[in-house]
Nucleic acid binder design. Structure first.
Length: 448
RNA sequence: GUGGUUGUAGCUCAGUCGGUUAGAGCACUAGAUUGUGGUUCUAGGGGUCGCGGGUUCGAAUCCCGUCUUCCACCCCA
């Protein structure tokens, strides 16, 4: 058979794993520095934990896991006869793959509420799955790195996430725009314009403003039965993207003012600190899953055309459906596959993260090979990543192996070297070589 | 989920109007070179032309289906 992998998935070869780990480590270091604790949750959740949390679109993108055993005998035969896939799902699937890390976290918080000190700050680095149609930078399986703080309404956390985002992308050597908005502002705008019932349609349309312009937005809104007057009014609201001006325009909407005040407070927290990346208040930003209620975040690359590399926001009541009302949380989620693709395209990975094997031992005959096995052990004892070619093959073949696997050093061991206990150490890149004792070699190759 | 696009050697790609045994570069293997990789030269191995069906005397080439890739929507990290 011809081997393939499912669509939207990818293999990671050694170099790619090293590079992905570099991203994980960078994010993890920042998370831990800010006092976040790691947790992990199962790849599968019960379907009713996941359903209804991401909107209708999200539900469609959930991977369902077929029940074990003779699931068809328990299937809803009416739905089956009608060829009604959606109706059939309940009776043949009770589990699904996690779609994000936030909803499983909310479930975790409720289940473990008695062992948790609130506010609880946790981070989580695990893959998630979405049955989306793949595109560049869009996969069906990808890692998310989430940090969330739950059990506090303080806007300090929003400010803290801006700092964490700024630090992570700066450490990765990327140039990004951090966008921030607030769902309450969007609600306030909808209210002011007179379309509070059409807020979702409005945000979805306005989110595309930069892409399709006002004509495109207007067309979409007219399709949602928004009047021309209301569109004009909306256009006026978005005439300026300045917070002060918006506050004035939104003045009659209590929730809108609240949203503006929240953004303002976040900016006050940040006012005495300097950011490396660009932070923008963007009232067109809709973003986020349906559970967001307050501030929302997004990060876009300023260097590469690709979807957002981070999303996040505040969810006032996500734990309520699991039986724990009144607990507010806020968090961010780094999309590692996209960050990886951006760094790959821009060639931003440091060079020294790709070299696990430092030296290849090359033995010239069977006796030397056995002897070299002891040398190998000595190197390992001294924490030097080393590899002995598995047989005393032709020198050319062994050298070529070292060369094409990018091993920086080779040690040659022949009968002469063996008897003198001084070995030939060669640096592959520039061709320099020295006759050295094992102790000298260890000294030279030892990690600092 | 909707519309389009792509698939030929391990990789990147040629392949005319449907016509004989499907090619190139790189990579790989061996030798030139019995203690030195990269450069060079010589020789060699490697292909169900994504998969299934159809049209035809004859299909990599045309048609249908399907899978995959990428793109635009939708939505998202």
């Amino acid at each position: 058979m011809k081997p393939t992998i499912p669509k939207g998935t990818r293999d990671y070869s050694p170099q790619e794993v090293h590079r992905q780990n570099f991203i994980f480590d960078t994010i993890k270091k920042v998370f831990e520095k800010y006092g976040y604790q790691p947790i992990e949750t199962p790849v599968m959740e019960n379907l009713d934990t996941l359903l209804g949390k991401y909107g209708d679109e999200g539900d469609k993108l959930l991977f369902k896991v077929l029940n074990n055993g003779d699931f068809l005998s328990k299937a809803d035969t009416d739905a089956l006869d009608r060829r009604d896939s959606n109706g059939l799902v309940n009776s043949i699937s009770k589990r699904g793959l996690r779609y994000d890390l936030t909803v499983p976290f909310a479930r975790y918080v409720v289940m473990h509420q008695h062992e948790i000190q609130f506010p609880f700050k946790r981070y989580q680095i695990q893959p998630v799955w979405r049955a989306d149609r793949p595109q560049k930078g869009r996969y069906q399986e990808f890692y998310q790195c989430d940090a969330d703080a739950i059990g506090s309404e303080s806007l300090m956390y929003e400010a803290e996430y801006v700092l964490m985002i700024d630090e992570v992308f700066t450490r990765l050597g990327l140039e990004v725009e951090i966008k921030i908005n607030n769902r309450k502002i969007l609600a306030g705008i909808a209210e002011t314009v007179g379309i509070p019932d059409k807020m979702v349609a409005m945000t979805v349309a306005v989110d595309k403003l930069d892409k399709v312009g006002w004509d495109g937005v207007a067309n979409e809104l007219i399709a949602s039965e928004v009047t021309q007057d209301q569109i004009d009014s909306l256009k006026k609201m978005y005439g300026s993207r300045q917070l002060e001006e918006l506050k004035h325009l939104i003045g009659t909407s209590a929730i809108g003012v609240e949203g503006v005040n929240e953004i303002t407070e976040v900016l006050v927290y940040l006012s005495n600190l300097s950011l490396t990346q660009q932070l923008t208040f963007d009232p067109t930003l809709a973003r986020g899953l349906s559970y967001y209620t307050g501030c929302i975040f997004e990060v876009k690359s300023k260097e590469v055309q690709i979807g957002s590399m981070l999303g996040g926001g505040r969810y006032a009541n996500l734990t309520e459906v699991f039986g724990l009302p009144g607990v507010s949380g806020v968090g961010i989620s780094f999309g590692v596959a996209r960050i990886f693709d951006v760094m790959q395209e821009l060639n931003r990975f440091p060079e020294d993260i790709d070299q696990p094997i430092k030296v290849l031992l090359v033995a010239l005959d069977e006796t030397c090979h056995k002897w070299s096995f002891n040398l190998l052990h000595e190197l390992h004892t001294n924490e030097i990543p080393a590899h002995l070619y598995p047989e005393p093959a032709k020198l050319k073949k062994q050298m070529k192996y070292a060369d094409s696997s990018d091993t920086p050093y080779v040690i040659m061991i022949g009968s002469e070297e063996m008897s003198q206990e001084r070995y030939l150490l060669k640096h592959m890149a520039d061709g320099d070589q020295w006759q050295l004792s094992l102790a000298e070699i260890i000294e030279k190759l030892k990690p600092n």
